[in-house]
Design a protein around this nucleic acid. Structure first.
Length: 785
DNA sequence: TATTGCCTCGTTTTT
DNA sequence: CGAGGCAATA
């Protein structure tokens, strides 16, 4: 190890033993299993500072990757604080922005230009929708959303179109493959990459170009990864390529063989994570990466951080007890010396309004006891559950903020403005073009746009070239005039593009030349005022960017507009998750809560089917749901309550609910007296401070035979609507029975036969998908005659 | 080409 | 219950 002086030594002060071991780790692969609240960011920052101070690495030789911009910024700031100087040159960034930074330099090697566009999920789906049309796919069965998820999964597993074709099984897969092929082709022609490509193309780059690989391998002598449990196979492969001697495993389970003529890797890979908090499997994150770390890196050192500095022991015991129900995991036992603290509470409420009012009355009680509202969070599985809580908070006149929902850069008007600039920057981008060509309305309808795009496609031209000669695209006089007018506006915007020194001026000019601003100003729709404000905010944001950016053109040829577009694509409002301003209760999904902590946490909607979510139950993904519960529980420092509703209206009429199975997995000895009864069918209703408002109690049952919506009444089919077989109380399926042997159709799995019933579980054999067990309360089945 | 109304369908989502 | 998609209309 490098010599250690007192100056470096002070970086170890205040660390516990395992933390210290991780920081001074000599070299080679290191896995830090960092339980919730165990100080993993501390370890990462001190490790980076240690490497620098002991002279083991220069700032420019360290790559630290995170998943969020917020985490990257925090890491950077804290390292700067520890070192007491600028950390310019240190690569601290998200996987995606590190990849973009590499791709901007190397794009030409991959057949892209430096100006390539980054498509977010919305852009990608627009393009994919067009591709699905081109291959004549039935867009009912093959929704852009579903198909994009499948393609994304292929990409995250580094499957090329041909790989996907080899794996395709059945007609659905084959259509997905055809869509993948058309979509990938379209991306290249648009000079665009989606989020998944950013990773996948860098992997391509490093695999195909040894000299590029060598360059980055020798640049980054130390690679550190945060939240390793959330890495997907592409990210895994990327790390292999950057660090290892013989990047044999590609993360997909297939051996790709050693890379020819490879120089030894530095092997200095440090990963930090917690398998118990792996909650992004649905986005192709692979928990095996952290579970199998020592198999992949046989000489790896493993350090466990189990001392928790956040929560009281009762909360940690609850968390430990819960997660112990997962089959496969790294055994870990969080402990704290903060004392037992409050008991954990479980409460059963008659309906979602009462549940919300109970939570709010408890919030008032805590607030009265001196807990700041900003230190209180209400967590839920799905965004739809926020509504009842919001209503109750509003009635109690408590201030709150909801994390999630529509983000600033996702707002239609903001995306429109950005699409203008994006298209000016990359005229091959047909998604941006299609978005703005008729916004504001200029009489260029869908058919005209279709003709322009088809013509551009056929001639290999960009939309910019196509609008210059509308007659050639086969347009008639009215359309030609409309397109001509648009072309004039575009010419004015391109003039601005060439002359405007700043991004803010360009944006402002675009809003003027396009008529977008005028249209909103002239509008009588009251919402347009807000839209106008958002656009002014966007310009203000750009001004800020210009000031910070300086406007130089880099050595690699990237200018301010490149950087601005990239930032907006990758840094959607990062401050939303920042610490709560005082006086506001925070509402958010469990996913959004990861990495945060609050004095008091309420986890609402703990009902089977809601949490764990019915789709997760169907898909057999209970472990991931349980980890999500674990994340929720471990957010709390001192107060934790979990609630469920006996009846809840998710959509349509209220349905009876059963308590979440996770509630029964919490160890009884950390629960208070009321909790022990709260998961039973006869749970008492806790007292509320206010009297229930009128009409707050849902009607019990519903009028028999009422058709729920237009079309065939479901009762006419012999079934009740929604969760057709939902139990009326005891959890036993009631309603018209579907007898074993009956042919049924499930919306997702298609037709099949009901094999048998086991309590509240239906066992069905589907024609395509083999056997499946469905929870009766959530199995939407239609009988097939 | 733009608007209206009907129908369908329902997770989570760091980038 | 509501948002978004699509087909029928003005």
């Amino acid at each position: 190890m490098a010599p250690v002086d007192a100056y470096a030594e002070e970086l170890l002060e205040g660390l516990n033993e395992p933390q210290r071991q991780a920081v001074v780790h000599g070299g080679g692969p290191l896995l830090v299993l960092a339980g919730a609240g165990s100080g993993k960011t501390r370890v990462l920052t001190h490790r980076v500072a240690w490497l620098v101070r002991t002279g083991q690495a220069g700032l420019g030789e360290i790559l630290a990757v995170t998943f969020t911009n917020k985490a990257a910024a925090e890491l950077r700031d804290r390292v700067a604080g520890l070192l007491g100087r600028s950390v310019r040159g240190l690569w601290v960034s998200t996987f995606h922005s590190a990849c973009v930074r590499i791709l901007r330099v190397e794009a030409e090697r991959l057949g892209y230009s430096r100006q390539f566009t980054i498509y977010d999920a919305d852009d990608a789906r627009r393009l994919l929708k067009r591709c699905l049309g081109d291959i004549d796919a039935d867009t009912k069965r093959y929704t852009p959303n579903a198909v994009h998820n499948r393609i994304s999964d292929h990409k995250n597993r580094l499957r090329s179109v041909d790989d996907a074709a080899r794996l395709a099984h059945g007609p659905y897969d084959q259509t997905v493959v055809a869509a993948y092929r058309a979509y990938q082709d379209a991306l290249v022609r648009n000079n665009a990459m989606d989020f998944d490509d950013l990773l996948g193309r860098v992997v391509d780059l490093l695999e195909r170009f040894p000299e590029v690989r060598r360059r980055y391998r020798s640049t980054f002598r130390h690679v550190l990864v945060d939240e390793y449990q959330d890495t997907n196979p592409a990210q895994y492969r990327l790390l292999q390529l950057l660090c290892m001697d013989d990047p044999t495993h590609d993360g997909t389970g297939d051996d790709v063989g050693p890379l020819a003529g490879e120089e030894p890797g530095h092997r200095n890979l440090m990963v930090v994570g917690d398998d118990a908090q792996s909650i992004y499997g649905f986005r192709s994150a692979d928990i095996r990466n952290i579970l199998d770390f020592e198999d992949d890196f046989p000489d790896a050192e493993v350090i466990r951080l189990e001392q928790n500095y956040r929560s009281t022991q009762n909360i940690l015991t609850a968390a430990n007890g819960l997660i112990a129900h997962n089959v496969e995991q790294r055994p870990k036992t969080l402990w704290s010396d903060a004392g037992a603290g409050d008991e954990v509470r479980i409460r059963a409420l008659p309906d979602d309004h009462t549940e919300a009012r109970w939570v709010v009355s408890e919030i008032e009680r805590l607030a009265g006891g001196g807990v700041p509202l900003g230190e209180i969070a209400v967590l839920y599985r799905t965004n739809a559950l926020s509504r009842a809580i919001e209503t109750a908070l509003t009635q109690a006149e408590l201030d709150y903020r909801v994390i999630g929902g529509v983000r600033f850069f996702d707002r239609a008007e903001v995306k429109d403005a950005m699409a203008y600039v994006q298209w000016l920057h990359n005229p091959a981008d047909t998604v941006a073009f299609a978005r703005i060509v008729n916004r504001p309305r200029r009489g260029i309808g869908d058919t005209t746009v279709g003709r322009l795009l088809a013509h551009a496609d056929a001639t290999g031209a960009t939309p910019l070239e196509a609008i210059a000669d509308p007659a050639a695209a086969g347009l008639r006089t009215a359309a030609i005039r409309a397109v001509g007018g648009f072309a004039e506006q575009v010419a004015a915007m391109r003039e601005s593009l060439d002359t405007d020194p700043t991004v803010a001026d360009l944006l402002s000019d675009v809003l003027r030349h396009s008529g977008y601003r005028d249209e909103l100003q002239a509008s009588v729709d009251p919402q347009d005022e807000g839209r106008l404000e958002n656009l002014e905010q966007l310009v203000a944001y750009a001004e800020e960017f210009d000031d910070e950016d300086g406007g130089d053109v880099d050595a690699d040829g990237t200018g301010p507009l490149d950087r601005f577009l990239q930032q907006v694509a990758l840094v959607s409002d990062s401050d939303r998750r920042s610490d709560a301003p005082d006086g506001q209760v925070t509402l958010m999904t469990l996913h959004n809560a990861k990495g945060l902590e609050y004095d008091a946490v309420f986890l609402v909607g703990c009902e089977d089917g809601v949490f764990p979510h019915s789709r997760a139950i169907d898909a057999g993904e209970l472990d991931e749901e349980r980890r999500l519960a674990y994340v929720g529980v471990t957010r709390a420092r001192r107060h934790l309550a979990l609630t469920w509703s006996r009846r809840r209206a998710l959509y349509g009429p209220p349905q009876p609910q059963m308590p979440s199975r996770f509630l029964r997995e919490l160890p009884a000895d950390v629960l208070d007296d009321l909790s022990s009864e709260a998961t039973s069918a006869h749970a008492p209703i806790p007292t509320l401070r206010e009297r229930p408002g009128p009409g707050s109690v849902g009607r019990i049952g519903r009028p028999a035979g009422r058709a729920d919506r237009g079309g065939r009444s479901i009762s006419a089919l012999g079934l009740r609507r929604g969760s057709d077989l939902a139990g009326a109380g005891g959890g036993t399926p009631t309603g018209p029975d579907i007898a074993p042997g009956a042919r049924v159709r499930h919306r997702k799995f298609g037709e099949g036969v009901l094999v048998r019933r086991e309590d509240d579980v239906l066992v069905l054999r589907f024609d395509d998908h083999g056997e499946r067990r469905l929870i009766a309360g959530f199995a939407r089945l239609e009988p097939v005659d």
